[in-house]
């Protein structure tokens, strides 16, 4: 095994847990998240010299991951497969924090892929508007408008959930 391969494997070990979580937030399915991560890491290897020289190696892999995700959305892969990890229907009311999680998850899933990517990059990965725009190949203005729309939808979903909880109690 070459020194490059060894360095690459070390890199994969380092970035894998973080990439899987970002991928899950993007697609809400662990199986598909693993497929996305695998596809992204393969692409990283093809441009290993660039990835190894990047100031923030995780940022490089994350950018590739988000682009792989958006690319798959465009090719309609997500519409052809059946997701396997949907939560089972529960007959009893879930505890408040779990209920909130499910609401956020559902609301996130209902967002258009690009809006979802903006929220994940901005608020989970803590990227600035400019960094998010660079990752997504768009203008800072687009990031701001997409973030505002996505946040409005999340807010709406949580407000409805609060109202339903209040009505139940």
């Amino acid at each position: 095994m070459s020194a490059d391969d060894e360095a690459y494997l070390e890199y994969v070990d380092r970035v894998l847990p973080s990439l899987r979580r970002v991928a899950f937030l993007l697609c809400q399915d662990w199986h598909r998240a693993d497929d996305l991560v695998q596809g992204a890491l393969e692409r990283v290897y093809l441009h290993w010299a660039k990835a190894a020289a990047a100031r923030e190696p995780i940022a490089y892999a994350r950018t590739v991951l988000v682009r792989v995700f958006l690319g798959e959305q465009r090719t309609a892969w997500s519409r052809r497969v059946v997701l396997l990890d949907r939560p089972p229907e529960s007959a009893t009311a879930a505890p408040p924090d779990v209920a909130e999680r499910l609401v956020v998850r559902d609301a996130l899933r209902d967002l258009p892929a690009r809006q979802r990517a903006v929220l994940v990059l901005r608020f989970y990965c803590d990227l600035s508007v400019e960094q998010t725009a660079e990752t997504l190949h768009c203008s800072p203005g687009t990031v701001k408008s997409q973030a505002a729309r996505g946040l409005a939808k999340l807010r709406e979903a949580l407000t409805e959930n609060d109202a339903a909880a209040a009505a139940r109690s």
């Binding site: 494997l9 894998l16 899987r20 890491l41 393969e42």
Partner: peptide, 10 residues
């Protein structure tokens, strides 16, 4: 995700 398989796939 198996790093060895990722490497082989790449």
């Amino acid at each position: 995700v198996d790093p060895q398989r990722v490497l082989a796939g790449a």
